[in-house]
Design a protein around this nucleic acid. Structure first.
Length: 125
DNA sequence: AATCTGACTGTTG
DNA sequence: CCAACAGCCAGAT
């Protein structure tokens, strides 16, 4: 299934349980392309389906990201699910962040969750 | 088929 | 904390 990426993304978003949120990067990983967060955002924007809780998909760092330009609406939806939000940021991100791999219920400590990525600004011609 | 855009992310200033 | 730059992917024009 080559072009099932969109379908996988929608499926991943759909399996997000209530009271939890996922980041675009996580969705991309679930879809099978850990580097397609961009496409995920595009798909979300296109999606607009009631069976896909796009409002549970947030940006990295707990930022709400966007919601058709109405971040306030997204904030309300998240608050309605029991997720605390401050301004454009989600609080308790560590517990609301839903990720597959139950690995002992939830993340209690930092299970070697190191993020190594040698990249960022490559300007040097 | 080629080019642009974007509900992204991380680093640097 | 915010602005800018760079890297990556899929869909739309």
């Amino acid at each position: 299934m080559p072009n099932d990426f969109a379908a996988r993304v929608l499926h991943a978003v759909r399996r997000i349980p209530p009271g939890r949120v996922s980041s675009y990067g996580d969705i991309a990983v679930l879809a099978g392309k850990p580097r397609a967060w961009r496409a995920v955002g595009n798909i979300m924007r296109e999606c607009r389906r009631p069976d896909v809780p796009c409002h549970r998909v947030i940006a990295a760092g707990g930022r709400l990201g966007g919601y058709g330009g109405s971040e306030g609406l997204k904030r309300s939806l998240l608050l309605a699910e029991g997720i605390e939000v401050a301004g454009t940021r989600v609080l308790h991100l560590d517990r609301v962040r839903w990720t597959p791999k139950p690995k002992r219920s939830e993340v209690s400590k930092s299970p070697t969750g190191d993020r190594k990525r040698t990249s960022g600004r490559r300007r040097s011609p």
